[in-house]
Design a protein around this nucleic acid. Structure first.
Lengths: 336, 336
DNA sequence: CTGTTAGCGCGTTCAC
DNA sequence: GTGAACGCGCTAACAG
């Protein structure tokens, strides 16, 4: 069909349709009424010549880029990937296209990426997790609206979309307690990570409410990676701690924990019950399938996408409050 | 500092440095000699005013966007995520920034995304897997250079970066044979997927070379998802097939297989040996850790990024030929 | 409703 | 070396 090499501009379709370029611009953007005849003529020319608007010219003239910047953390981490996936889905039918960059959980990198996106004139931005200081976010937010996912910044709470980590961890721990466990170990996430702190607090509170004394020696510091879960168990065992259940701050560490137990010939859940957090895709295929908290990361991303779309359209829209659920699988047993 | 609200342009720094805008443009692009004094004056003004070039104006005037389009398939699949990760890393220190879109393994979506990227005037494109017909790729390649990863298109082979799936599958199967197995089942990937076919062929050839008759009933069709691995085992067992090892076309299916065996009380590797393909991050934490083919997906992505960068710089650079390795872990045992 | 015109910010000829 | 002027393709006031 009409696949010529030379770039065709609105001028050309204006000629072809025998109207002025502004009329063409109007029907293209739909910002103003145009006579039916002219409208059709333009559309016909557009199709005939296979016209494609030049985004640069458009951006330069309008000041809008129709892109939304997304800062993710370390693509290839299941949780953040699911969020990214949700964001992509959320923008599917919107006029905006997301442009994704990776902050790698390194503040310097994040900072640089933020600059990159700002320079690209994104119309809005979604920051997924990460550790950008509030000050930077506030500053950037003056240039372009920002929404934060999976992180709670108190001073910026009106734009933060996150699940209640405290409550979720509380429920996960409570489940173990209800199954009869009283010696429950916890493998926590990175100490400086907000989510990790909240999950630890939820664990602690659940014990407290159940009248079970908190024992510091049952809490082992991890870093969200599988390897740290493995080490945590080694530590626990080496120190001769006694426990019948383990609650991990995320599924990846639970996988490490599972392997360590497996190597020691300790059965799950016969000997030890295990609970994770995140419900990453493969968790349901662990042996046995892992009991975990499902935050619906995809949902999180998707709602962020629609939220910011509405924000840009100035449509009233409440900040979404994503839900989660405790998915009970075979990795937890009732303590006899 | 100089963080004013109003957009500052080269005109302003021209005034500030008391030179003309073209001089500013020159020092910024470095395309022409400029007197040392003026050069410094400009740089000083740039820093003082915290100047940020407008990408749209740049793009409009130069015709270059300094972006590379990336079409991935279904973010949140470990293998493709790792590739995406590699691509991001590869562009880290390059002047280009990648803009990622998701094809979701659906040709219509891929096609739309390809259009989107082309419209955004990307200077180059990386297509990861997917099923875009060659014709479309050829066409797009006339607008902007394209590199294909993890897929082999015969007519376009000079731009395809992929591992030797056939050979890798051959080696994986051979490993099982060398461990004494003769009844080896195979859970294949989607029938229309090129990689799946090659892996099946590698499996078949390895058997043949070892003088082991190929038995169709030991090959079960999967779809790369964990659930299909689980079903495959159920099928095999229900039909009463006899086998001592299973080679899966990817790790995700191997996870499903592992769970199915676990549920039946069949031990790995005591009763059945298991081999996967991809070495996704969590595979090393399965119980027992999975023996698998490690294609170094990250490496794949990274080399594609540098390759296309060089391509755009017109620097001679051979097409990278990514390697892989068989990672032997505890999921395989010698058959007594 | 529609056509004309003036920029948007920057690269790039041109003369000087 | 350096500056002035034009144009990239499109949007957004302007007039009619």
């Amino acid at each position: 069909m009409g696949t010529q090499k030379e770039k065709i501009t609105i001028q050309q379709i204006a000629d072809h349709a025998d109207v002025s370029i502004s009329t063409v611009s109007r029907v293209l953007s739909g910002n103003a009424k145009v006579g039916a005849k002219k409208h059709d003529a333009v559309m016909k020319a557009v199709n005939a010549l296979n016209y494609r608007p030049n985004v640069f010219a458009r951006g330069l003239a309008s000041g809008q880029s129709m892109t939304i910047g997304v800062i993710t953390q370390h693509i290839s981490s299941p949780f953040y990937d699911a969020i990214a996936q949700g964001i992509l889905e959320g923008f599917e039918d919107s006029p905006y296209s997301p442009i994704i960059v990776d902050g790698q959980w390194k503040p310097e990198v994040e900072k640089r990426m933020l600059r990159t996106l700002l320079d690209r004139q994104v119309d809005g931005m979604i920051v997924v997790g990460g550790g950008l200081p509030y000050e930077l976010i506030r500053e950037a937010n003056e240039e372009t609206p920002i929404v934060i996912i999976a992180r709670d910044i108190p001073e910026f709470r009106e734009r933060c979309i996150y699940i209640d980590n405290f409550k979720a961890a509380y429920e996960a721990t409570l489940h173990l307690i209800q199954m009869g466990h009283r010696e429950i170990a916890h493998v926590s996430g990175k100490a400086d990570h907000a989510d990790a702190k909240l999950r630890l607090q939820g664990y602690t509170k659940a014990l407290e409410d159940a009248g079970i004394p908190f024992r510091e020696e049952l809490v082992v510091q991890g870093n969200f990676l599988p390897q740290s879960g493995l080490l945590a168990v080694e530590t626990l065992l080496t120190l001769g701690q006694s426990f019948s259940a383990i609650f991990c701050a995320n599924d990846q560490m639970a996988m490490g924990v599972r392997l360590a137990l497996y190597r020691r010939g300790i059965r799950v859940p016969a000997d030890i019950s295990l609970v994770g957090f995140d419900d990453q895709p493969t968790s349901a295929f662990m042996t046995p399938p892992l009991t975990t908290i499902k935050p619906s990361a995809t949902e999180l991303g998707k709602s962020a996408a629609t939220y910011i779309s509405n924000l840009l359209k100035n449509v009233a829209h409440p900040l979404p409050k994503p839900q989660y659920e405790l998915v009970v699988r075979e990795s937890v047993a009732r303590l006899r």
